[in-house]
């Protein structure tokens, strides 16, 4: 082996795999492709592509500005395509938005009140922590991008397995 070319996917260029069934039901694998899902999603729609009981991986099409969200536990995002800015604010009274036992992302009804924590510009392959008790918003003024989010199934998670999965 001498020459290597690492293959990543993108919204504009991906090749979906497949399942060769021998003695099984393809639905058992809940097989989808995040770029295909994001191509069919509304901006920042939190489409669940992986679910392990209450825990989820969501795919978000990053296009324009998102709403502000907060969460009572840590969440993480990985940028799979595009350039996406993350704005972070420390909420003055985070418990009023999300009780400690509340799980999943919670959308804020108005701009957050509290000091700015910082901002992060993510590009391909970059991962960011969305710390518990903060408010965050994504912004992408360039071509649409894709995020995956590690979180817990919440009020805004969207499940549409029959539409996205190999069957």
């Amino acid at each position: 082996m001498s020459e290597f070319k690492t293959v990543f996917g993108s919204l504009e260029n991906y090749e979906k795999g497949h399942i060769e069934i021998i003695d099984d039901d393809p639905k058992a694998y809940a097989f989808s492709n995040i770029f295909e899902v994001a191509n069919q999603s509304a901006p920042y729609e939190k489409v669940v592509v992986g679910k392990n009981l209450k825990y989820v991986i969501e795919t978000l099409r990053a296009e324009g500005d998102s709403d502000w969200y907060t969460c009572a536990h840590d969440e993480f995002v990985v940028c799979m395509d595009g350039e996406i800015e993350v704005h972070l604010v420390k909420l003055n009274n985070s418990a009023s938005y999300t009780p400690e036992n509340k799980e999943g992302s919670v959308k804020l009804e108005s701009d957050p009140e509290g000091p700015k924590m910082g901002r992060i510009i993510l590009r391909h392959g970059h991962q960011a922590l969305l710390p518990k008790g903060s408010a965050y918003r994504f912004s992408n003024r360039k071509k649409p991008g894709v995020l995956i989010m590690q979180t817990i199934c919440g009020d805004h998670s969207v499940e549409k397995w029959a539409e996205i999965c190999y069957s």
Partner: peptide, 30 residues
């Protein structure tokens, strides 16, 4: 996340074949 892995899936009790799952960059499966 990148490139490709082919998964040979078998019955866990007997080893009998169930499926082959071909995963490419961006694919997610259980």
């Amino acid at each position: 996340m990148s490139d490709q892995i082919d998964w040979k899936v078998e019955n866990d009790e007997t080893g009998q074949p169930r499926a082959k799952v071909v995963m490419k960059a961006g694919d997610i499966a259980a």
